[in-house]
Design a protein around this nucleic acid. Structure first.
Length: 617
RNA sequence: GGGCCCAUAGCUCAGUGGAUAGAGCACCUGAUUUCUAAUCUGGCGGUCGCAGGUUCGAGACCUGCUGGGCUCACCA
């Protein structure tokens, strides 16, 4: 591995300290950071922490260090000192050589394969409803994390676990069976997952009607008088009683539960209906995944995995990690890890949610041999995953150290949280359609894509709209609960996806004009770089390290911020300098290649976010 | 009640213990005979929730508090 510039500078500072002050600086922490924009230079050494070592004032140390580095390190062309900050100006020759080398390749920033396998789980929807805005955040996070890890050298597999069973899908099934008259997505022209979702909603509607009627019946009124606490309003009482009513009194509830039992018993008719309706949902999901540009290497279905985990429970008992209660139920005592006592198997021998997660983790390890598993799941399940990981650690699973819950905050609307009951849930397909529509309106009065076929133009509009949406979501750090304003998500100016795309398009436009057979061999003769060029060069230089950091911290928002920053640098450079009519042939040649380097990096960076860049826009 | 997360400009968000805390949007303003103006320039805008502490240095680290969210099932 070649010495990076930052390593080289850090080492040089250590050597300088030893030479200048006779101190052994090998263990001294060297604070090297990028120079703030308002000062000249690219790297800054902070000399405050060196005062004890050198026994001099920070500014004196900075000056002496600067002189030494300028005199002894060819990469350091100049320096300036402000208080305890030594700003280093990297030699133009270094930047020039750098720009003409690594980033000229399309896979700039790609780390060599490290042989380690990692699984990223994301999406993981229920099959009773279409995908919504919350799923979009999940999917974008999962996909870009997967891309990032790949770029950082991992062998990545994308998986999801589909919650295809349970009471929810039975509600859709029952409503369809009772009320559809055999309607199908084809007969109604509905997108199939939306079709199934409509029956889920219909079930809830019918159930509410039934519940309301019961509340107003003699039986309901008597029940209220008998059961409600003094002073509690009927409205409040019945709102909280709803789940119990569903389980104990409701005719529809009983039918849905019966259907679930029939399904578990393998009833042929119920299973056939289940397959049919889930089939519709998958057809719909596939279209949404395609629209989002993501795909999976393997799908796990809860209907296949929900009984897993019993062997893990056995193992836990063997290892004396789990205990059995008198009633036969099994639990793990995690109180010493600041977690609760967790039951893993019921007295009747059936398993629960976390038990299947134990089994599924092992199943995936057996499938792929991955030593890392990333679960992209909302932060309301933080406790669940803390428990799951602690259990797997105690079971001494070989992948236990590589488990990570990529937790993210919920998506709120400016009006508050999304609530299906109040119809404020933003549907994924609607949103996608909307952003593309807006991009189309914004493109309508532009001449930039004239001469392209209608298909090509539509594709560009699609790429722009999706870039606006995706960038708007992925630029926010995962941990943060975010407010999604649909109006802002279609913005195409400022800190947005289209802004970055536009910078890329400019790098392509100049090459189109120059012609691909232009001779750029004179670029090596280019000597003095302009400020905007040095700025771009140092930004390009930072890309591979940033990819590494973003992959290590599972944070794609870092890449989004970077892309914006690099695009901004390109736009500034573009404004300040002419490329094709630059002063000298060497300048033309260098700037063209600088454009190519920036273009590759913007494209690579945006691809990490699952965003395409168009050739023109 | 216990645990975890969040709080930075009017709004949406950045901010490895380092400099005068930054972007974008919004509002005001100037720039286009040119390689794409989906751009660029200037202006306006801050008690970094509050109070202590650690440090040469705190928006960041520690403690307490306030406000908001999530969670603490033999549900998923």
């Amino acid at each position: 591995m070649k010495h990076t510039l930052t390593d080289l500078l850090t080492d040089a500072v250590r050597t300088a300290l030893t030479e200048l002050y006779g101190a052994d600086a090998q263990n001294q922490e060297i604070t090297l950071q990028t120079t703030r924009r308002e000062f000249e230079g690219e790297f800054t050494v902070v000399t405050f922490p060196l005062t004890r070592l050198a026994k001099k004032k920070p500014d004196v140390i900075a000056r002496e260090l600067g002189e030494y580095l300028k005199g002894n390190v060819s990469e350091v062309a100049d320096f300036n000192v402000i208080k305890g900050f030594l700003n280093l100006v990297v030699a133009d020759a270094y930047w020039k050589d750098f720009v003409l080398a690594a980033p000229q390749s399309g896979d700039f920033g790609q780390a060599p394969a490290n042989g380690e396998k990692v699984i990223v789980e994301f999406a993981s929807p229920n099959t009773n409803k279409p995908l919504h805005l919350g799923h979009i955040r999940n999917i974008l996070l999962g996909w870009s994390t997967s891309q990032l890890l790949q770029k950082a050298g991992y062998d990545v597999k994308n998986v999801q676990i589909i919650n295809d069973r349970g009471i929810a899908i039975c509600k859709s099934m029952l409503a369809w069976q009772k009320f559809s008259d055999g309607a199908t997505p084809a007969s109604t022209g509905s997108k199939p997952d939306h079709f199934v979702g409509e029956y889920y909603v219909l079930f809830e509607t019918k159930f509410r009607e039934e519940y309301l009627a019961w509340q107003q019946s003699e039986e309901g009124k008597t029940f209220f008088k008998k059961s409600a606490k003094e002073g509690l309003s009927a409205e409040k009482f019945f709102a909280s009683y709803k789940p119990k009513y569903f389980n104990e009194y409701s005719k529809l509830g009983a039918e849905a539960k019966e259907m679930l039992l029939d399904w578990e018993a393998g009833d042929a008719q119920v299973v056939a209906l289940w397959k049919k309706m889930n089939g519709w949902v998958y057809e719909g999901f596939a279209a949404t995944y395609t629209a989002l540009g993501v795909h999976f290497d393997k799908l796990y279905y809860e209907s296949n995995t929900y009984k897993l985990g019993k062997d893990m429970v056995e193992l836990g008992i063997e290892k004396n990690v789990f205990r059995t209660r008198d009633d036969g139920s099994v639990y793990a005592d995690l109180t010493d890890a600041k977690l609760s006592e967790k039951t893993l198997m019921r007295g009747d021998g059936t398993s629960i949610y976390i038990t299947q997660d134990l089994g599924t983790a092992r199943l995936r390890y057996d499938d792929f041999g991955a030593t890392r598993m990333i679960y992209v799941v909302g932060d309301e399940q933080n406790h669940h995953f803390a428990t799951l990981f602690e259990l797997l650690k105690r079971l001494e699973e070989p992948y236990a150290k590589g488990l990570y819950h990529l937790s993210y905050g919920m998506v709120d609307l400016p009006t508050g949280r999304m609530k299906s009951r109040e119809g404020t849930v933003v549907d994924a397909d609607d949103l996608i359609k909307e952003v593309i529509h807006e991009a189309g309106l914004a493109s309508a009065d532009r001449a930039a894509t004239e001469g392209l076929s209608p298909q090509e133009q539509r594709e560009i509009v699609r790429q722009i709209g999706m870039a606006a949406l995706k960038f708007h979501i992925i630029k926010v750090g995962p941990q943060k609960r975010m407010i999604f304003d649909p109006k802002e998500s279609v913005d195409m100016q400022g800190q947005t996806g289209p802004y970055v795309q536009n910078a890329y398009v400019r790098t392509q436009a100049v090459w189109r004009k120059a012609g691909s057979d232009v001779d750029v061999s004179t670029a090596a003769d280019y000597v003095d770089l302009a400020a905007a060029e040095r700025d771009l060069a140092s930004k390009l230089y930072a890309f591979p390290e940033l990819v590494k950091l973003a992959a290590e911290t599972y944070d794609p928002s870092l890449i989004a911020m970077y892309c914006y920053d690099l695009a901004k640098g390109l736009h500034k450079f573009w404004h300040d300098h002419s490329i094709l009519s630059a002063e000298t042939p060497a300048a033309v040649a260098f700037r063209l290649q600088l454009c190519r380097a920036v273009g590759h990096t913007l494209k690579g960076g945006m691809n990490l976010l699952g965003i395409d860049v168009p050739p023109r826009m």
